[in-house]
Amino acid sequence: MGSYLNPGGGMFKACLRSKIYVDKSGLIAKTNEVLGTEQRFVCVSRPRRFGKSMAANMLAAYYGRGEDSAELFSALRIHTDKSFREHLNQYDVIRINMQEFLSAAPDMDEMLKLLQKRILRELKMQYPDYIDSDYLVFAMQDVFAYTRHPFVILIDEWDCIFREFKQNMEAQKKYLDFLRVWLKDQEYVALAYMTGILPVKKYGSHSALNMFTEYSMINPREMAEFFGFTEEEVKELCSRYKRNFQEAQAWYDGYELVAIEEGRKKTYSMYSPKSVVDAMLSGIFDNYWNQTETYEALKIYIRMNYDGLKDAVIRMLAGDKVQINTGTFSNDMTTFQGKDDVLTLLVHLGYLSYHWPDKTVAIPNKEVSQEYDISN
């Protein structure tokens, strides 16, 4: 096992050993459905502290060929799914966190060189007889040609470039071009699963990674129940820890996610996982979010009353909903055509909840409302 190639189940074991673990293994059944199909490219975007890395660790433990991980899943829901044994430990997994490489390199060119170097090093150690190229794509093509074991590629924090290199369009384009060449139309990809806060970046009217199916806070589709803690899960935790459910609801509920399942609309009332866990363990209902540089930057637009944005926020703080058009958002931190684009970004960041039936946004709960400071 390596750090990136078949990293094993160590990180997922830590999740299972935690004082509170909520079983989200049903996600595996969803990804099993798209393995090796045209829908094998999955991008899941949701706010910080909503369990994105935990999901990636679970998928790495399940799919990776480095070890037998059946015991880790023996008490989880996925264990009874008909696809469980078929795909368990059958793939070479590459698991990376883009933030790690971004933090270690001075620019995009060096970051991409470092990423390829580190992955290639482990591929060559595992398959020394099959690789004679220092180009990652060719190396993976060669490994697959000889082994016929396809890859599951898990990319966490895929969008960190767009949050840290907000104005550097050249760096963003190089990054997206790399991902497209590495992943698109490659037979060796059984599944590409990316997580981040932002959906896939658009260029003009087209997406540079248009092969991905996106699951976001605006359109979670059939992944909705895995985006956070459901109401039933929070009720069970409140019962176990003897906490007041109504307080938990007021502090952390409010994310309304709508999915179409088996032809029927189903609405999930979604809670912020990290905040619920902290409240259950401490017994104190409080604000467990910390304001970030991302939101500090957005305050500039709010205070300028950009296209009436501050007025909209004031209305929502008073309990109103605001109509929104999400269609013009470019999935970045800088390209705003009007207040609707800023409000859409706030949905992806978790500062607003999107109500699909009437296309409105609102401040979801007490915790998030305390994050807003609209003073001049």
Rank of each mutant, 00 (worst) to 15 (best):
A171S: 14
F178D: 01
L179T: 02
D142Q: 15
M140P: 09
M125C: 06
D177W: 07
D185F: 08
F165Y: 15
D177M: 13
D107F: 14
M108W: 03
Y193T: 05
D132V: 02
K124W: 01
M125R: 15
N168Q: 13
D185H: 15
N168C: 03
D109R: 13
M169K: 15
K184S: 03
E187L: 11
L176A: 11
D159S: 11
F165G: 00
M98Q: 04
D107K: 09
Y135N: 14
Q126H: 07
Y135T: 06
F144S: 02
S133K: 07
W182I: 04
D185Y: 10
P106V: 11
E100A: 12
E110A: 15
E170M: 08
E100C: 07
L123T: 00
K124R: 15
E122D: 09
R180I: 00
V137K: 10
V137R: 13
A139N: 05
D129T: 08
L115W: 01
M111I: 05
D142V: 00
M111P: 01
F138K: 15
L102R: 08
P128M: 06
V93M: 12
D177N: 15
D156R: 09
I155Y: 02
Q116V: 11
V137Y: 02
F101Y: 15
P106I: 03
E100N: 10
M125E: 15
E100P: 01
E164I: 02
A190G: 09
G196I: 07
I197T: 13
N168W: 12
T147M: 04
R163C: 05
L123P: 00
A104W: 04
I153L: 11
M140I: 07
D129Y: 06
L154E: 01
W158Q: 05
F178I: 06
K166D: 08
Q116P: 03
R163E: 13
F144G: 01
F101T: 05
I96P: 01
L191F: 06
I96N: 04
C160N: 10
L112V: 04
W182L: 10
L176E: 14
T147G: 05
F162C: 12
V181L: 13
F144M: 02
E110L: 13
R163T: 10
I153W: 00
V181K: 11
D156K: 14
M125L: 11
K174I: 02
Q186Y: 04
A190W: 06
E157K: 11
M140W: 12
F101G: 01
M194E: 12
A139V: 02
N97H: 13
Y127L: 02
Q99D: 03
S103P: 00
M108E: 13
M169H: 10
L136V: 05
W182S: 00
D129S: 11
V189Y: 10
W158C: 06
L154T: 00
E164W: 03
M111G: 03
M98L: 14
D134P: 06
G196L: 08
I153M: 08
E164T: 12
F165D: 09
V152A: 08
V137E: 12
A105H: 06
K184P: 00
F144E: 00
S133W: 05
D134H: 14
K173N: 04
D142S: 15
D92I: 03
V152P: 00
C160L: 14
I119H: 05
D129C: 02
